[in-house]
């Protein structure tokens, strides 16, 4: 260890919004093998669906199976839609649970949390940065399903103008705009769950526990949402609008469900964001 001193003094400019920490968070998230394994698994969903439909010659179209499944053979662009419908109830919440549940608990478990706080990252700032990372993952995960679906659909099936739910037909360009809107819709849908995961993550130093709890809550909410006896509760469940993206597939687009969904998710972000702040701002970091 040579004894010369570090000569470069850091600038004490201050006032920066700390975008470097956001960048650092994204870098760390996407340098993890685990993140790419989850994205790979998500990409497998449309591939699996498309290949199975292509290989099986059964075109009877009995009407069973996920929505849009029977349209795939006529138009490959429907692979994205089918894959999203399959991924939304289980697989997407599972991956979001892993990322959101890991946010604080993962750093606490590694012990790196204490060095981030001593740096000092600032507790509120760290929560915001962590949430931003989780939100970005929601978008990347959704986009992975949509884009992979579009590619594999185009490779295996005929592609052409798409008939929307309202009976109108849009060209391929218009369809891709709809798909992007769809990805946005699903991303927004997952933001409430991400906030819940962030909060749970501040409660523990065991990331697996926070991940499992978050994913389990998504399952519970969907079960409650399936019980007609609890209809009064349904508008308050963060899963209520998860599959309500059909309005984006009409001409003209009906924005009601998008707006309702966004409002509901904002409510969840506010409540669980506040809870996460309340817990994390006073918590002793002892790991």
């Amino acid at each position: 260890m040579p004894a010369e001193s570090v000569s470069t003094r850091p600038s004490r400019s201050g006032g920066s919004l700390g975008l470097t920490l956001v960048l650092s968070e994204i870098t760390v998230l996407f340098r993890r093998l685990r993140t790419w394994a989850m994205i790979g698994a998500l990409a497998l969903i449309p591939i699996l669906i498309a290949v199975v439909v292509r290989v099986s010659s059964d075109t009877s179209g009995s009407g069973r199976g996920p929505a849009f499944l029977n349209s795939i053979t006529q138009n490959g662009l429907f692979v994205s839609l089918t894959a999203l419908t399959v991924a939304i109830p289980l697989f997407l919440p599972l991956t979001i649970g892993v990322v959101a549940g890991d946010t604080i608990a993962g750093e606490a478990n590694l012990g790196t949390l204490r060095y981030l706080l001593v740096a000092p990252a600032g507790r509120i700032r760290l929560l915001l940065v962590k949430y931003a990372g989780a939100a970005l993952f929601c978008f990347v995960a959704t986009l992975t399903v949509v884009v992979t679906g579009a590619i594999i659909g185009a490779l295996l099936f005929p592609v052409g103008p798409v008939t929307l739910l309202s009976g109108d037909t849009v060209g391929i360009g218009g369809y891709f705009v709809r798909l992007l809107l769809l990805a946005l819709y699903v991303t927004v849908s997952l933001l409430g769950l991400s906030a819940i995961g962030l909060f749970i993550s501040t409660l523990t130093t065991i990331p697996v526990g926070a991940m499992a709890a978050t994913a389990a809550l998504a399952a519970v909410a969907q079960i409650l949402g399936a019980l007609p006896q609890l209809e009064w509760l349904h508008p308050w469940l963060f899963t209520n609008y998860w599959l309500g993206f059909a309005d984006l597939l009409r001409e003209p687009i009906v924005w009601t469900s998008f707006a309702d969904n966004a409002l509901l998710q904002l409510g969840y972000i506010a409540v669980f964001g506040a809870l996460a702040y309340g817990r994390f701002s006073t918590r002793d970091v002892l790991s």
């Binding site: 470069t8 003094r9 850091p10 600038s11 004490r12 400019s13 201050g14 920066s16 700390g18 470097t20 920490l21 960048l23 650092s24 870098t27 760390v28 790196t112 060095y115 981030l116 740096a119 000092p120 990252a121 600032g122 700032r125 760290l126």
Partner: peptide
């Protein structure tokens, strides 16, 4: 180290 350095908003990314 880059990660921990980025956590401090006062440090300069250029150095």
């Amino acid at each position: 180290l880059r990660r921990f350095d980025a956590a401090d908003r006062h440090t300069s990314p250029s150095t």
